[in-house]
Simulated assay, not measured.
Amino acid sequence: MKLINRCIAESFGTFWLVLGGCGSAVLAAGFPELGIGFMGVALAFGLTLLTMCYTIGHISGCHINPAVTFGLVAGGRFPARELVPYVVAQLIGAIIAGAVLYSIASGKAGFDAAASGFASNGYGAHSPGGYALHSAFICEVVLSGFFIFIIMGATDGRSPAGFGGIAIGLALTLIHLISIPVTNTSVNPARSTGVALFQGGWAIEQLWLFWLAPIIGAVIGGLVYRCVLQQKHGKTA
């Protein structure tokens, strides 16, 4: 598949992840009686990724996350020369999704993206649970590292074929169950950027962390799997 086609697939996939995951938080999580809560938002993120794994996984690999792309480069599963096009495509999809979500949400009287937070990631006063910068950094690094570790294991040629998307989608659900109270869960710089631009204030000021920490974690996870667990000779996915 040509690079342009794979990048288009990445844009669509990232759009779906941000619209489905952040949309569930912005549109559905806050109602006292009908709200889906943290657990529902976690499941929404997992479902968006799971569905895209089986929709575009055979086309682009379904990274839909710059940290995943960095991690797969570090893990020897993806060519470094294609990293920038993939990340640009992911950002485009995420920002368009943020714009669509903003358009939908602004149809409700009294909606204010800045005041609501607009599903943005944050630390300190902007952490859902009031967690400090160092807690947010550690959380994002560790969970991003394990996320790429799971992705590489689930798509290894020695793993059962056809089940990788389930493990990866459930992993993202678990990650959200752990870290929504800490950072509102990023582990994905594109997801963070797509909504931060529309929140427009503190979310942009704190966005650096949600690029730096997930990429560091993913690179560590990719290197660990590559050096310790990946088969040195023979086929891997």
Results as ranks from 00 to 15, higher is better:
32 P>D: 13
157 G>T: 13
41 V>I: 14
175 I>A: 11
179 S>L: 03
201 G>M: 13
144 S>F: 02
88 V>Y: 03
112 D>Q: 12
34 L>Q: 14
106 S>V: 08
113 A>F: 11
177 L>N: 06
49 L>N: 02
96 I>D: 01
31 F>N: 13
71 G>M: 00
200 G>R: 15
127 S>Y: 09
132 A>D: 15
68 V>P: 02
59 I>C: 10
88 V>A: 14
159 S>I: 08
28 A>R: 00
39 M>G: 15
161 A>Q: 15
121 N>P: 07
203 A>D: 10
176 H>E: 04
16 W>A: 14
150 I>S: 00
94 A>K: 08
106 S>P: 05
159 S>A: 15
42 A>L: 00
69 T>Q: 03
220 I>D: 04
3 L>N: 02
231 Q>A: 14
189 P>Y: 02
196 A>T: 15
154 A>H: 04
73 V>L: 03
167 A>S: 15
234 G>N: 14
2 K>F: 01
224 V>A: 07
122 G>Y: 10
191 R>W: 05
232 K>E: 14
221 G>M: 00
175 I>W: 01
59 I>E: 07
17 L>P: 01
47 L>P: 00
85 P>M: 00
159 S>K: 07
107 G>N: 12
193 T>G: 05
217 G>V: 01
97 A>N: 06
130 G>L: 08
133 L>M: 13
32 P>A: 10
68 V>Q: 01
202 W>S: 01
9 A>E: 04
80 A>E: 09
119 A>G: 05
67 A>K: 01
133 L>R: 12
57 G>P: 06
89 A>I: 04
183 T>V: 08
12 F>S: 01
100 V>Q: 12
88 V>H: 07
104 I>L: 14
125 A>N: 15
124 G>F: 07
114 A>Y: 12
139 C>I: 07
14 T>S: 06
214 P>W: 03
11 S>V: 04
201 G>K: 15
231 Q>M: 12
76 G>P: 05
3 L>M: 10
12 F>R: 04
36 I>G: 13
32 P>L: 09
43 L>W: 02
22 C>A: 13
9 A>N: 09
13 G>H: 06
